[in-house]
């Protein structure tokens, strides 16, 4: 992951988190995981289109989570709920 200033001649782009901005700002509803209910089946991790769920800890990166709600919808134990965050 290089973090280089753009080249003036050649239109090169470098992989980085946040290429589309701090996409957590897009979120209307926020997923919360209930650790007690979680069976670590990893479905939420595999189904996340934004790769914001950590493979080891299942921590959600709220800086980038867009709140699509797929994880909550697909969780077989209903261990993830979508909540409205207060300012």
């Amino acid at each position: 992951m290089a973090n280089k200033i753009y080249d003036e001649k050649y239109p090169v782009s470098y992989p980085m988190h946040g290429a589309g901005g701090k996409t957590g700002d897009w979120r209307l509803l926020t997923p919360r995981i209930d650790r007690e209910k979680c069976s670590k089946c990893m479905l939420c991790w595999v189904y996340c289109p934004d790769a914001v769920i950590d493979r080891e800890t299942l921590e959600i990166d709220y800086e980038y989570c867009k709140g699509c709600g797929i994880c909550a919808r697909e969780c077989p134990r209903k261990a993830i709920v979508m909540i409205r965050e207060e300012e």
């Binding site: 290089a2 001649k9 239109p11 090169v12 782009s13 470098y14 992989p15």
Partner: peptide, 15 residues
């Protein structure tokens, strides 16, 4: 790296 993807007006003219 990716090549010749999308630019805004800020860089396009420069290229």
């Amino acid at each position: 790296t990716s090549y010749v993807s999308v630019t805004g007006p800020d860089l396009y003219e420069g290229f």
